[in-house]
């Protein structure tokens, strides 16, 4: 789409804040202000969502394979965000099981893999950060 979706969405959010919110009061003003902030988040997420999900799914598959769990990628990847999110949910559920199992072990391999799981979880949080978040 032209103009680009993030640019158009960001402009729309700013227009809502500058032109519509001041015309409203109370509950309605708050709803429109939150709506404009959500449009900003959509703008931020639109361009990066598929890339971050693809990157994260690859990273989690590698961790699961190191943990001895089957984690084959689809032979023909579906790059729609909804499909990548569904795969992400499946992989993250398996990651929870892997991490819980690692925590019951007391050996260097388990500790190393657990540390790498945490490194990937930290990277995933940084990939998902919202510019407007408090933290």
């Amino acid at each position: 789409m032209k103009p680009s979706i993030p640019a158009a969405a960001t402009d729309l959010a700013e227009r809502l804040r500058a032109e519509i919110v001041p015309e409203l009061t109370g509950f309605r003003a708050n709803n429109v202000a939150m709506g404009s902030a959500m449009i900003d988040m959509i703008a931020e997420e639109f361009d990066r969502a598929a890339a971050r999900l693809f990157e994260e799914n690859e990273a989690v598959r590698a961790l699961l394979r190191r943990g001895g769990l089957a984690a084959d990628a689809p032979t023909k990847p579906d790059l729609r965000v909804s499909a990548l999110e569904a795969e992400n949910d499946r992989l993250r559920a398996a990651l929870i099981d892997l991490q819980a199992a690692l925590e019951t072990r007391d050996d260097d391999d388990a500790r190393a893999l657990d540390a790498d799981v945490w490194r990937e979880l930290t990277r995933s949080v940084e990939r998902r950060r919202i510019a407007s978040a408090n933290f």
């Binding site: 708050n30 902030a37 988040m41 978040a133």
Partner: peptide, 20 residues
């Protein structure tokens, strides 16, 4: 609106707080 807004705005920040 606040239900969707709060979930979008806070869930990842909450994870980040846990990491810290």
């Amino acid at each position: 609106v606040i239900h969707a807004y709060a979930a979008w705005w806070l869930r990842n920040a909450q994870d980040r707080a846990i990491l810290e």
